[in-house]
Amino acid sequence: MGFVIKRVYEPAEASDGYRVLVDRLWPRGVSKEHAELDLWDKEVAPSPDLRTEWHHHLERFDEFAARYRAELEENDAAKSLVGFGGEHDRVTLLYGARDREVNHAVVLLEWLGEHGASVEP
């Protein structure tokens, strides 16, 4: 098992394990009850400046990903998140973005895998 990503708008399932919202802003239209979170870890999300800049320039995802990875390297919350994989059979990282391929959770999942965490595609 290990880390997986999932849109927060999808229904919670028992197989999700420990559910962590990794967005800085609360997703629109999602109640706290529907989200069924174990943790809202705002600190692992991209910085407000980076998120705002990227939001307006979606074609620059590669640049965003590189800058976000640099932020993660300096982020104590991200380093702590690596350890969650040892504490829980499965950790589901929840995000609100519409695009399942181009979003910060994809970058975060890859970064976790590069730092010793078990990740699932």
Rank of each mutant, 00 (worst) to 15 (best):
D23G: 08
M1E: 09
A97P: 12
L37G: 04
R69Q: 10
R28Y: 08
V82R: 11
A14S: 11
R51Y: 04
G2S: 09
F64K: 11
A66K: 07
Y9M: 03
D41Q: 15
F64G: 00
A77E: 05
G17A: 02
L72H: 01
E53M: 08
S15C: 09
L81T: 06
D49K: 15
N75E: 03
A77Y: 03
A70N: 03
G113W: 07
G29N: 06
Y18H: 13
A14G: 01
A14Y: 09
V44M: 11
E87V: 13
P46E: 00
P11A: 06
F64Y: 10
R60I: 01
F3V: 01
L58M: 11
E53I: 04
P48E: 04
K6E: 03
R98P: 04
D16G: 03
R28V: 14
R60K: 14
P11T: 12
L39M: 11
P27R: 05
K32I: 09
R24S: 11
E73M: 02
E114I: 10
G17E: 08
K6S: 10
K79I: 07
E73N: 10
H57K: 13
V91K: 07
F61C: 05
E114K: 12
D89K: 14
I5L: 10
A14K: 14
E74F: 08
E114Q: 14
S31M: 05
V8I: 15
G2R: 02
G83L: 15
